[in-house]
Design a protein around this nucleic acid. Structure first.
Lengths: 235, 235
DNA sequence: TTTTAGAACTGATAAAAATCATTTTATTAT
DNA sequence: ATAATAAAATGATTTTTATCAGTTCTAAAA
């Protein structure tokens, strides 16, 4: 864990990415407060950012990289309950609910986060009603999206679930220049995301490839027939 | 749908149940505003309170009765994505996200709701930072709970899932005087809640009954061996 | 380059859950 | 009270998915 306490570079106040985040629109004063005692931490691909059952030390803002949030079932099976990209807050709900983490955050690639102190975050939140309302809207939307995902996972069979998962990844992380999904996941990650065994994910992806619905280059995946994939995801 | 526009009886300001709800602690002024143009509506058991794809007309506060929130899979299968009891807000997230309903609300028993206008609700919310923060905490907690439920449903097999569902019902709705679960659901409702077919729910409940883990009297269920049920819910 | 460990892949088999068909039991309406 | 309808119960069967074993491929380390 590489801690870098540089307040000049990449401060919240001057952060170029701020415009994309929920921090957009905050006053200079609020930003300065959030920037106080803020630290920047870097994680290598595969490293754990925080662990289930531990207490948050602050609000994690994901500057660079991608992150998965996972839980483990009683028999040790991994389930991905969330994905993050820049400039998401990683642990917003946990902080707001004032709870310990109920999940573990793991870097999917080399990642840089900044951690705003809980105290400063709460201060801004309790005094800035517009900000609070913005977060309310954001979190409520997450809850509605979760409903959709829940029905997808619980009601569809594996081909449809994996099709949906690929479409979701396209929507969430977008495409690279060469039209491949802009995220590189192991088959086992796709399994943890779609709640299917790894063997079945591999089989299904191979089947999609044979039917020219997708193209695979190692871990990279390109969607060749978006429409067909949507059809499959329907049933 | 029986609309009763009585502002004297059961107004928000004087509502005895207010102390239990998220409205607790609001000023007389805020309560008076919420009470303005508020209507009380009654629904009979089985009636639809609102439907998926429609636009909210206001914040539904459940005064009496119980409600299920359902979605339907592409093949028409019902999934229960939420349960409500007095004095829950039924459609809080939808209103906050400013979206159309992504689910349908159905009365599980004779039910009375009051509907606070969206305008008044937003007014209070945008001016009362303490209230906004309270809602933030509440919704964040829902999201964390949802994670637990998601893993339960996706990772466990049917006996464990139904055991967990019964324990959840006990926790959420509590027990009647005679120790039966204080909610009466059809087997198909339990199926929709635990994402299992009705036939398998019936089989499993029969099995639990034979092992003296629960006792059934028509639709009513009594948990005889809580500990055993927790064991089963584990794996 | 060779070694090694971890992923990806494949087929066979077993287990879990859904589906279907039928009977019995409740509930509701007449 | 009776008929009609809906729900609960049960067994047989099929489908889906998981599990297991083994092979090939890939990427990183020696």
């Amino acid at each position: 864990m590489n801690v870098c306490k540089d307040k000049q570079l990449g401060s919240c106040v001057y952060c170029g990415k701020r415009k994309l985040s929920l921090l957009e629109g905050l006053s200079e004063e609020d930003l300065a407060l959030l920037n106080n005692d803020r630290i920047i931490v870097k994680f290598r691909k595969g490293e754990t950012i925080y662990k289930e059952y531990t207490k948050p030390i602050g609000l994690y803002c994901l500057n660079e990289g991608k992150v998965k949030l996972v839980k483990y079932s009683d028999n040790g099976n991994e389930v991905i309950i969330g994905l993050k990209k820049p400039v998401d807050f990683i642990d917003l709900e946990t902080l707001l609910a004032n709870e310990k983490y109920n999940h573990t955050a793991i870097a999917l690639e080399d990642t840089s986060v900044c951690i705003i102190t809980e105290e400063n975050f709460r201060k801004v939140l309790s005094e800035n009603c517009v900000f609070a309302n913005k977060l309310l809207k954001n979190i409520s939307q997450s809850l509605l999206d979760y409903n959709e995902w829940f029905v997808n996972i619980t009601q569809k069979q594996i081909h449809a679930r994996i099709a949906k998962t690929l479409l979701k990844l396209k929507e969430f992380y977008g495409l690279s220049d060469d039209d491949f999904l802009n995220v590189s996941l192991k088959r086992s990650d796709i399994a943890a995301l779609s709640c299917i065994t790894t063997a079945n994910v591999i089989r299904t992806i191979s089947a999609f490839e044979k039917e020219n619905i997708i193209e695979c280059d190692k871990k990279r995946i390109k969607i060749l027939n978006h429409k067909k994939l949507e059809e499959i995801s329907q049933y």
